[in-house]
């Protein structure tokens, strides 16, 4: 699998190089001074601190699904 992937690497890089050579890279379309709303605490889960993260521990002990939550930790306490 890895060998096949390496063999196809030039095919992967080529489109990117052509893309970069053939046209200019897109400019960031949302300027820093336009991001006040995005920085507002109502847009951030982190405004709730660790208390907000705790609910993931509750789910982790009662559901089989895990991951893709952007946090890490260990232990259980879930009998």
């Amino acid at each position: 699998m890895t060998t096949r992937l390496l063999a196809r690497l030039p095919l992967c890089i080529l489109p990117a190089v052509l893309l970069l050579a053939g046209c200019s890279a897109p400019e960031p379309w949302v300027k820093p001074y336009q991001r006040a709303n995005l920085a507002d605490p109502v847009m951030l889960d982190s405004r709730k601190g660790k208390a907000g993260e705790y609910i993931q521990h509750v789910y982790g002990a009662r559901e089989s699904a895990r991951g893709a939550q952007g946090s890490s930790g260990g232990g259980c306490g879930c009998n």
Partner: peptide, 28 residues
């Protein structure tokens, strides 16, 4: 970088975490 130790009378868990976060593209 973080290290977590969790202890119960019948379970012990140690976790080491390493992460990197990088902003690109005009921080978008």
């Amino acid at each position: 970088l973080s290290y977590t130790n969790s202890t119960e009378n019948d379970y012990e868990a140690n976790t080491l975490y390493l992460g990197i976060s990088q902003e690109f593209f005009g921080n978008m």
